Amino acid sequence: MQRVNMIMAESPGLITICLLGYLLSAECTVFLDHENANKILNRPKRYNSGKLEEFVQGNLERECMEEKCSFEEAREVFENTERTTEFWKQYVDGDQCESNPCLNGGSCKDDINSYECWCPFGFEGKNCELDVTCNIKNGRCEQFCKNSADNKVVCSCTEGYRLAENQKSCEPAVPFPCGRVSVSQTSKLTRAETVFPDVDYVNSTEAETILDNITQSTQSFNDFTRVVGGEDAKPGQFPWQVVLNGKVDAFCGGSIVNEKWIVTAAHCVETGVKITVVAGEHNIEETEHTEQKRNVIRIIPHHNYNAAINKYNHDIALLELDEPLVLNSYVTPICIADKEYTNIFLKFGSGYVSGWGRVFHKGRSALVLQYLRVPLVDRATCLRSTKFTIYNNMFCAGFHEGGRDSCQGDSGGPHVTEVEGTSFLTGIISWGEECAMKGKYGIYTKVSRYVNWIKEKTKLT
């Protein structure tokens, strides 16, 4: 034993070699072989497995989906700052455009905790909710729209109204504003409101030439003092309507412009014939205590009207009353817009006519005020429907199939267009061939041609 100890002390290297040989010859039971080890760690190889990531292109799944990435790591994937920024906006807080917040056709661009709407022409605001041009839906104005110097929408209202708090709607500024039905039992019968379409306001006024200088022999019209197929109006439903009495009662109609003036057809009036105007009328054979009678003290036909040349060209006249009318729910003026808007309103496509005229061709006159909704007829169809001249200051309205029309005794009465609950004068009943005849239409004086003249002559002093 002493000898062994001496050998170990003198030859430590020998001992180490012996131990190493023993270990190498022993069977290893701690580690699995290569094949079995792979069965336990069965993990798919990654895209760049075996390579240094710093030297390969980034992978979106590896960089940002398996674990949260930084902007720089995302930049490695896209290799483009702009594309990385677009991805980053949604990656950080989701897609803010998912709810489609942009209105009126706006395009949404996502941002971090926010979004941006790219608005089409005519709109602005956070969600493109603000109209900035009158060309689109009248700028959301209830009545009139004008573009300011910086191309912003400025709404306005006709006389007797003021802008509401929203700067879009119009509200009454006087007790009985024009064009409004205020009798409670008839307010439910107000005709369907007309909503502004998209309009090209630059070209809204037709490029028409008034044929002022045409000389033409007097034409022989049949029954051209021209509501057939209409309905009984309720008291106060058309408070701007008046009836004219002269040699015979209810020979023509008219509309209240203001307390002192009536507008009617020029062919209705004769110099030297006494005319009485009755406002607030409903049943011409009954006294309903809503009527107001006034005498006409002055007749002003349009300066281009000449019955000797043509009885229905420039067929418009103004009547001055001896005493002002007292405005109330049964006696209310009709609204008159400017030339541009009167023309736009007419193009809405349908209007209402009213009167006490004959209820059928050569038949009896109506006792109760009649009204009828009539569609506008395109000019080409209008011209083809008659052998008589249709001037540019006239328009056609009615039904091709016949059966409904204005008729004798309705002449001078109103053709009105309702705009968001307020009625505007767009025409004056003038003439036609018979009444409600198939293929024939009622012919009306186009008020847009005469609004400046009306307003100039009827100013209240």
Rank of each mutant, 00 (worst) to 15 (best):
N166R: 02
D405G: 13
Q216R: 07
L14M: 12
D410M: 15
G229L: 12
G236Q: 05
D232G: 05
P235I: 10
G272N: 12
C18M: 11
M437V: 14
E286S: 11
E433M: 07
R43D: 01
E116W: 11
P333W: 01
R83D: 10
T426K: 00
I284W: 09
C396L: 02
R180G: 03
P177F: 01
G398H: 04
H400F: 09
Y312I: 08
G236M: 07
P44G: 09
V374Q: 05
A317E: 00
P172L: 04
D405L: 15
I336R: 01
S49R: 05
D95K: 13
C435F: 03
K188A: 15
Q57N: 01
T81R: 10
L211N: 10
T133A: 12
V77D: 02
K455V: 06
E285V: 10
E285T: 09
V447S: 03
G229T: 05
C128K: 03
G94Y: 08
V263F: 02
S187N: 07
V296T: 04
N42L: 09
G58P: 14
Y352T: 08
N42D: 08
A164S: 07
R404T: 15
F345W: 06
V419R: 05
D95G: 12
E420Q: 09
I344P: 03
K311T: 06
T389Y: 11
F87V: 03
Y330K: 05
I262T: 01
R294C: 01
E116H: 08
N135Y: 08
S329P: 15
R140S: 05
Y22I: 14
P175V: 07
N283P: 05
F251L: 09
D410A: 10
H282E: 04
I336N: 01
T158H: 10
I454Y: 00
V269M: 07
S70T: 13
V4Y: 06
T225H: 10
D150I: 10
V269Q: 03
G106N: 03
Y391C: 06
L32E: 15
C157Q: 00
H267Q: 06
C108V: 02
F224L: 14
K362F: 05
G349K: 07
K459V: 11
N127E: 06
F55D: 10
N38A: 12
N306C: 05
D249L: 07
L14V: 13
P120D: 13
P235G: 06
R294K: 04
A308W: 06
H314D: 06
V296P: 03
R180S: 05
C108L: 03
N213Q: 09
V77N: 07
E116G: 12
D405K: 14
I262H: 01
I428H: 03
N213M: 09
C170L: 00
H415P: 00
W431Q: 15
S448K: 02
S385L: 10
P301K: 14
Q408W: 14
T190A: 14
